[in-house]
C-alpha cells in the first residue's frame, strides 16, 4: 500500500528499481512497441524521447497496467509483475502523469488530486475537508497557491490542469513516477518549476521517467536518455556522454 506517510522510497540494492525485458505491444496491425528492454533506477531521471507515435506513451501504459503486453517481462522492486489495472501499479508505488487520460473535467481540483484514492474518515465516508486542506497545501508547496482546490477542473487552463495531474502523482510518495510530456503546453516559468520539481524528486530517491519532445529540457534534467524509434529501442545514452545530434539521429532511426 502506498500510503503517503509510511512508504520510504528507496532504490534497490543493485540500483535497478524497474527492469523491463523484451516488452512488445500490437494494436491490430500497428506494432506500437517491439521488444524494448531497459532499466530505471531510484535517484535517477531517465529521459524518454522519440518521434510522435514512437511508442513512448504505450510503453508507460504497459508498465502501469492500462494495457497488457503481448510479450515481455516487467520486474519491479525485484518482483516480476503483471499489473492488470492501473490500480495495481498505484498500489505498488508507481504513479503516472498521463499525457491523454488524466483528469475528470466535471470534478473539482481536490477530487482529481485524490481520484481513485479518496481519503476516508473513521466511519468510511469521504473526508472532504481533509482532502481539500491537503490539496491546498500540496498546490501551495508546488507554488500554485493561487489555484483553488475547489475550482472545477473543466474551467482550468491547460497548464493548470497539468499542475493538477502532477499534484496527484506527487501526493502519494511513489517510488517510480512516469511523466508523459508534463511540460507540454506550459509557459516558460511553469516549465522551469516542473524541471526543478523533477530534480527535487530525484534527490528524495524516486525513479523518474520523463517524456518530452524538448531536447533541451531532457538534457538539463535527465541522467540517462532512452530513445524509441517506431516501437523499438534505438539506444540508451548517459547524458554526459552524448549530444543532441546523436539523440536526434537515434530518433530518426539513423545509425
Amino acid at each position: 500500500m502506498a500510503d503517503r506517510h509510511t512508504m520510504t522510497p528507496a532504490a534497490d540494492a543493485d540500483g535497478a528499481l524497474l527492469r523491463v525485458r523484451g516488452l512488445s505491444k500490437r494494436f491490430d496491425h500497428v506494432v506500437a512497441l517491439d521488444g524494448v528492454s531497459f532499466e530505471a533506477h531510484g535517484n535517477e531521471v531517465l529521459g524518454l524521447v522519440g518521434d510522435n507515435g514512437a511508442g513512448k506513451s504505450t510503453l508507460i501504459k504497459l508498465v502501469s497496467g492500462v494495457h497488457r503486453p503481448n510479450a515481455g517481462e516487467i520486474v519491479f522492486a525485484d518482483r516480476e509483475v503483471a499489473f492488470a489495472t492501473p490500480r495495481d501499479s498505484r498500489e505498488r508505488g508507481i504513479e503516472v502523469i498521463y499525457q491523454d487520460m488524466a483528469l475528470v473535467d466535471e470534478l473539482e481540483v481536490w477530487e482529481n488530486v485524490f481520484l481513485g484514492r479518496l481519503l476516508r474518515t473513521r466511519v468510511k465516508t469521504i473526508d472532504r475537508r481533509r482532502m481539500i486542506a491537503e490539496a491546498a497545501e500540496l498546490l501551495e508547496s508546488l507554488g500554485l497557491g493561487s489555484l483553488s482546490p475547489t475550482a472545477q477542473v473543466g474551467y482550468l487552463s491547460g497548464g493548470q490542469k497539468k499542475a493538477v495531474a502532477i499534484s496527484r502523482a506527487l501526493y502519494w510518495d511513489a517510488r517510480l513516477i512516469f511523466m508523459d510530456e508534463p511540460t507540454a503546453a506550459l509557459a516558460v516559468v511553469e516549465i522551469g518549476k516542473v524541471l526543478e520539481l523533477i530534480g527535487r524528486l530525484r534527490e528524495t530517491g524516486v525513479a523518474v521517467v520523463f517524456v518530452s519532445h524538448n531536447l533541451q529540457e531532457i538534457f538539463s534534467t535527465a541522467d540517462r536518455i532512452m530513445v524509441l524509434h517506431r516501437g523499438q529501442l534505438a539506444g540508451i545514452r548517459q547524458t554526459g556522454e552524448t549530444d543532441q545530434d546523436e539523440i536526434i539521429k537515434l530518433m530518426m532511426g539513423v545509425r
Binding site: S64, P86, R87, L107, L115, I126
Partner: peptide, 24 residues
C-alpha cells in the same frame, strides 16, 4: 459522501481517467 458515489461521477465524467486513476 461515499467512495462509490464519488467514483460514479469520475467514471461518468471521464471513464479513462477514472480507470487510469485506479478506480474499479
Amino acid at each position: 459522501y461515499t467512495t462509490f458515489g464519488r467514483d460514479l461521477y469520475a467514471i461518468g465524467g471521464n471513464r479513462e481517467a477514472a480507470f487510469a486513476a485506479g478506480i474499479r
